Computed example of a mutant assay.
Amino acid sequence: MRTVDVARESGYSVQQVRDLERLGVVPPAARSANGYRSYTPAHVHALRAYRGLAGAVGPVAARRMLTKLRSETLTEAASTISAVHVRLTREREEALRAQQALRAIQAEAHPPEPEQQESDAMTITQLAAALGVRPSTLRFWEQEGLVTPERVTSLRARRYDPSAIGAARIIAALRSTGYGIPQVRDIMASLGRPHGLCEARRILQRRLDQIAERTVALLRAGTDLAAVVTLTEDPPSAG
């Protein structure tokens, strides 16, 4: 296939095809004696897969992932792709939990009984794992006055009660949407006001919409990703 053929089949311009080849999105094209590029259907599949992956995980991560897929076995490649689906599912679940926490704030829910609060509390390690962040991130949020854990035991270990957990979930969702610390601080401080609640609800819904769009982009790339990983598999030996 000529460059112009690949461009037409993949939906990119001729220059974009050349640029994406240079960036490693597709393997280098064969060169004829006169120097012209010669592509195969595998290049078209890779370019189409890149479009969906870029929408799901971003262009830089998509380039790295396609390079990785070409060097993996079918089992490894399937695991790599499945991990993206798992990541998107987790992001969606966390955004939904942030919405639940926001509704609890809006309803001015009463705090749980002491024994229930004790059972629902989390350590910094548990909360960090639940949010998919590092414990140092939670400590930074505490330093910035965004979330305040309790201090328990003689070691002054941090313990996050349901209220602090809910706040941390909202903060994590806001940060994932691209809001800086000063903006997050303003939004969290405004949650007691109707306008602030409406703004937070809008942001969280936009976060869910973005995750849905990324999931659809990954689904659209599915057939081409399957072609990428199967076309790069070594053919079985005879016998």
Score class of each variant (00 low, 15 high):
residue 2 R to F: 09
residue 2 R to P: 06
residue 3 T to G: 06
residue 5 D to I: 13
residue 8 R to Y: 04
residue 8 R to G: 01
residue 12 Y to D: 02
residue 12 Y to S: 00
residue 13 S to I: 00
residue 16 Q to N: 03
residue 21 E to G: 05
residue 24 G to E: 09
residue 25 V to C: 13
residue 26 V to T: 07
residue 29 A to N: 05
residue 31 R to W: 11
residue 34 N to G: 15
residue 34 N to A: 15
residue 36 Y to I: 13
residue 38 S to T: 13
residue 38 S to L: 14
residue 41 P to F: 11
residue 42 A to N: 06
residue 42 A to E: 13
residue 42 A to H: 12
residue 44 V to I: 14
residue 45 H to Y: 13
residue 49 A to L: 10
residue 50 Y to R: 02
residue 50 Y to A: 08
residue 51 R to W: 09
residue 52 G to M: 07
residue 55 G to F: 12
residue 59 P to S: 13
residue 60 V to L: 09
residue 60 V to N: 03
residue 66 L to A: 04
residue 68 K to C: 11
residue 68 K to M: 13
residue 73 T to M: 01
residue 74 L to H: 13
residue 75 T to E: 12
residue 79 S to M: 12
residue 80 T to K: 03
residue 81 I to C: 04
residue 88 L to W: 01
residue 97 R to V: 00
residue 101 A to D: 03
residue 103 R to M: 15
residue 111 P to N: 04
residue 113 E to G: 01
residue 114 P to Q: 02
residue 118 E to A: 03
residue 120 D to S: 04
residue 121 A to V: 01
residue 125 T to V: 11
residue 129 A to G: 10
residue 131 L to P: 00
residue 136 S to N: 12
residue 138 L to R: 08
residue 141 W to S: 04
residue 142 E to G: 03
residue 144 E to T: 05
residue 146 L to G: 02
residue 146 L to W: 03
residue 149 P to V: 05
residue 150 E to D: 15
residue 150 E to P: 01
residue 150 E to V: 15
residue 151 R to A: 06
residue 152 V to M: 07
residue 153 T to K: 11
residue 154 S to Q: 06
residue 158 R to S: 12
residue 158 R to P: 03
residue 158 R to M: 04
residue 161 D to H: 05
residue 164 A to F: 06
residue 165 I to F: 00
residue 165 I to E: 02
residue 166 G to N: 10
residue 167 A to C: 04
residue 171 I to K: 07
residue 175 R to N: 07
residue 178 G to E: 09
residue 183 Q to V: 07
residue 186 D to Q: 04
residue 187 I to A: 03
residue 190 S to T: 02
residue 190 S to A: 14
residue 193 R to Y: 02
residue 194 P to A: 13
residue 195 H to G: 14
residue 201 R to L: 09
residue 204 L to P: 00
residue 207 R to N: 07
residue 209 D to A: 09
residue 213 E to M: 05
residue 220 R to Y: 09
residue 221 A to M: 10
residue 223 T to G: 14
residue 227 A to I: 10
residue 227 A to S: 15
residue 227 A to Y: 15
residue 236 P to L: 13
